[in-house]
């Protein structure tokens, strides 16, 4: 079953200088028990995508087209605030970059973890036991005693694990993780990735994982979607995307990753040019103004071409990738 099927999603914001199309015809599926990674530059629409899924778009934002079918029944763009509230925290949970922002500084961790079970009929004692059990799952030592402590008494990595424990408390079908490891050092980052991986298998949920860090995406995710200027320019399995990118943007983005350079380089590779103004998109392909393979055909918007097992790219040349094997 598909946990979330996003089809043709378009999100617009009304601004003083005209309508801004933040997401344009975005389509992808999050299958059951899978981890889907989202990569793309700042401003490519990753946050808008999360907010659209959670029903948290700003007042001037609007789902102008398409659908987001959750668990085969609810269209998240249509169900309204009441039904959305019933899903959030229960069936769809989130973990953000800053764990301190997700935890209440004046309540003990145990109190917060009991409070978020407000829909459950368990007794207080049972709820506290579940909270301690969840802390154990995220590998917090001596969990019963930790319930009485306050967020500031934990280190950054532990706070993030507590935030993960709270998000997974109600065993959601979908966890949205927005840059959850950005503030951690490399040793805690890999520990957190491994933890998320284990919990995902254990609980059987799916994860939508957003990160700048291509190494983390490569290590954790089953599938990857690549976004540019509010469009999904490429999607596929993690191996298809990292080993055989078909969109020039994906290939360029990987070339820019300093993790691929094994030694010091005088000039780091970059992608020349700027992301287009989302109020005035180029008529044809959205990446054409910065693309090193641009042709006359690119003045017209390319169709999504689909290849073996769901690998799709929004490019006229997707069937002729460059020397595709990007060196790892």
């Amino acid at each position: 079953m598909t946990v979330l099927a996003v089809d043709g999603l378009t999100v617009e914001f009304a601004t003083e200088r005209g309508t801004l199309t933040a997401l344009r015809e975005v389509s992808f599926d999050i299958p059951e028990r899978s981890i889907v990674g989202v990569v793309g530059e700042s401003g490519c629409g990753k946050s808008t995508l999360i907010n659209a899924i959670l029903g948290l778009l700003a007042d001037n934002g609007d789902v102008a087209g398409g659908s987001m079918i959750f668990e085969g029944q609810h269209d998240l763009g249509q169900i309204g605030p009441e039904a959305m509230r019933a899903l959030r925290g229960q069936r769809i949970a989130t973990v953000f970059q800053d764990p301190m922002g997700a935890l209440n500084p004046v309540l003990s961790v145990g109190r917060q973890m009991v409070n978020i079970q407000y829909r459950s009929n368990l007794s207080q004692r049972e709820k506290a036991a579940r909270a301690a059990g969840m802390l154990r799952k995220v590998r917090i030592p001596d969990p019963e005693r930790q319930l009485d402590r306050f967020p500031h008494e934990f280190s950054g990595g532990m706070k993030q694990r507590i935030a993960i424990a709270m998000a997974l408390m109600m065993e959601p079908a979908l966890l949205i993780a927005d840059e959850p490891t950005t503030a951690l050092d490399a040793t805690l980052e890999v520990a957190t990735i491994e933890l998320l991986h284990d919990l995902q298998r254990d609980i059987g949920c799916s994860i939508l994982f957003i990160s700048h860090h291509l190494g983390v995406i490569a290590e954790l995710c089953d599938q990857v979607i690549v976004m540019y200027a509010g469009e999904v320019v490429e999607r596929g399995t993690v191996r298809q995307i990292f080993h055989r990118p078909r969109h020039p943007y994906t290939a360029k983005l990987f070339e820019c990753d300093p993790a691929r350079l094994h030694g010091r380089s005088r000039m780091l590779p970059t992608i020349p040019g700027e992301v287009p103004d989302l109020r005035a998109r180029p008529k044809g392909c959205v990446f054409a103004p910065r693309c090193h393979r641009v042709t006359e055909q690119c003045g017209e918007r390319p169709p999504a071409q689909t290849f073996e097992s769901g690998h799709a790219a929004l490019c006229w040349l997707a069937d002729k990738p460059e020397l595709a094997e990007v060196q790892g």
Partner: peptide, 10 residues
């Protein structure tokens, strides 16, 4: 040694 590298098969 922890530094994640962008290769799913490494």
């Amino acid at each position: 040694s922890a530094n994640p590298e962008p290769d799913p098969d490494l």
